[in-house]
Design a protein around this nucleic acid. Structure first.
Lengths: 356, 356
DNA sequence: TGACACAAATTAAGCGCTTCAACAAGATCT
DNA sequence: AGATCTTGTTGAAGCGCTTAATTTGTGTCA
């Protein structure tokens, strides 16, 4: 039990502070919200009382009276994925800079939990919402809009014009990855991915195809199908590839995720016939930064997570500030960046590893 | 602009619903909160009105009237670290199971932001708080307690008896890691860590020392100092080690983090003289799961993040439910688990890699 | 000195909900 | 038929705050 303080009431209200300071409740409110309206002397007295009694303003009462909040809700699919953690981070910094608080809801990729959080934030009358889903969420988005709640979509393209959206250019992700391999002399490119009709994968595939097409007839593309997008799927794909005769093994691999990329490297190395990057160059597409720290650092193309979060907040604040009817939904597509590491080129900055 | 719905008011209140359904506002409240008090017929009518008007209960008004919330605040240091993401995940599932909502605040390891979030949740009158900090936070904790807000500490040991606490047994983390190496025949154990006076590191060191002491005089321990706890620090440590004559290189390495462990593996392999795990076995201590997916899978000892989150919620709910003065703070220490992988033993389940 | 402006503090009307005492209208019992 | 319960519904009093309108108390000017 912590000893209760001076005022001896556990949750003193403005009323209590006012009595203690010998002023009216409105004055206490003014001291907190419009100090310029209050004389120095009273302000000091009131602040002393607040301090002494440990007064904490009741946010529920405040936002009820004022009719709005200063919180923004961010509902995202999977915190364990560093891209989402980055989105949250970027959004949070931008929100703080605008003097708003960001509240996080993690859906664990469960549409039901996602709806729960949307409703929770809706009931809390947040100033606005950011949604970074993994699945179609048009129903939820429309529900929020119908309630007059502004919402910005992050990292997922929903039907055009439904709401403001911030995306990474996934076609460019694939394009950069493939072009990098082609520029370093690879001729037999493989795109290793699952066949799921999952937005980012399809865009990346298109980008890879464009890069190969641009390269002309000297460069060939094949697609290697994996069941999923995890480390073990890459491992399996590598096992398949090593069964081939040497001249049929691709010399440049674009893995649709870093997890697959690392699996491929591990699989190829353990088989012991191919050197990386000499014989095979591997490039991943980053969804999760931490998968890039294997013993052969993986070249990767990454979405600008922090910036995406920041831009999303900016769009949201803009929409909130707009006069009713004045707002035009926008979709902002940001460019990925490439980090060249040892899995695709020999030498600097990281070192090369060859099998026994 | 979404077309406004039937009731044509953007945020209808209970008042509006009541009018539309031809009942009193109290009845609407009853339909929502105590349906058994209301006749079938009215309930149906009211629910229809709610549906038609898109009514959403105002949480601020509700919690103001009722004097309490059903939200729990979780303030944590760094979401990008998978242990914290796991804590959040575990806590969230437990909270949902108890019909409470978990709100996340990410402090980015900044004490100021941490205080902001504590105050935010304090003002929001959350039912309770979970705090997973990286630094001493006794001031914040005491402030919350003084305001009568229950708080449970996660993954950080603060002064005894300040509040309920959930920890992983870090001494056991070190002990398990070292004993595993010793049991697989290693004689020259190295503990690679930074010298920072950081709780978990110190505990792990003690555990390693205990395991070595138990092994008797055949096994020796040395400590290798790194500046930090990141990948590059491991890399640097490996470079140092490879300068030694073969018989002075440790044959079993406990890295105080997985990041260091992976760095060491990369460093040793690139130097090309030592095989892993044949010549050197490496074990990490997991703080971040994703650092374990390198091309040589790293044996690691991990805290049970999900369970820690769950237990923290249970402690909190227990404290909330307790009668004033009845509650005794408890500290619960959970045991880590070891995942044996290819960096410490040859063969199954993963494969071994040796340098060129 | 009275009219007027201005600063500082107060009064009071809500914000949208919950809850409880009070009440109406049958149903049930004596 | 009257007393007594039940069941369903409502009126009204807050919850703790904000804020417009108002009052009070100066100082200023003609």
């Amino acid at each position: 039990m912590p000893p209760p303080r001076a005022g001896n009431k556990i949750n003193p209200s403005m009323q209590d502070v006012a009595r203690q300071a010998g002023v009216s409740i409105a004055t206490v409110s003014n001291v907190i919200n419009r100090p310029e309206k209050v004389s120095q002397a009273t302000a000091v007295r009131v602040r002393a009382a607040i301090q002494a009694m440990g007064f904490v303003r009741n946010e529920a009462a405040r936002s009820l009276a004022v009719g709005s909040t200063t919180s923004i809700g961010l509902v995202l699919a999977d915190l364990v994925n560093s891209l989402f953690a980055d989105l949250a981070h970027g959004a949070q910094r931008a929100a703080n800079a605008a003097d708003m608080r960001l509240l996080l809801g993690n859906t664990l990729c469960d549409p039901e939990i996602q709806d729960d959080y949307l409703d929770l934030f809706d009931e809390a009358r947040v100033a606005g919402l950011l949604l970074a889903p993994m699945l179609d969420s048009s129903a939820g988005i429309e529900r929020m809009r119908a309630h007059g709640r502004q919402i910005v979509l992050l990292n997922y393209a929903q039907a055009e014009g439904l709401c403001c959206t911030v995306l990474v250019d996934n076609e460019m992700v694939g394009y950069l990855a493939a072009r990098h391999l082609i520029e370093s002399g690879r001729k037999r490119i493989a795109f290793v991915a699952s066949l799921d009709p999952f937005q980012p994968i399809e865009r990346r595939r298109e980008g890879v195809e464009r890069a190969v097409a641009e390269a002309g007839s000297g460069v060939h593309l094949e697609e290697v199908d994996t069941r999923g997008i995890l480390h073990e799927d890459g491992l399996r794909a590598a096992e398949q590839l090593t069964l081939r005769s040497r001249e049929n093994v691709p010399d440049g691999i674009v893995a649709v995720t870093d997890a697959i990329g690392n699996g491929i490297i591990q699989g190829l190395l353990s088989q012991g016939r191919l050197r990386i990057p000499t014989d095979v160059g591997v490039v991943g597409c980053e969804d999760n930064r931490y998968l890039g720290t294997g013993q052969i650092p993986l070249t990767t193309v990454s979405p600008p997570g922090l910036e995406m979060g920041r831009v999303a907040i900016e769009l949201l604040l803009e929409e909130i500030a707009a006069l009713p009817g004045e707002h035009q939904h926008r979709t902002i597509v940001l460019q990925p960046t490439m980090s060249v590491r040892a899995s695709s080129v020999a030498g600097d900055p990281d070192r090369q590893l060859s099998p026994a």
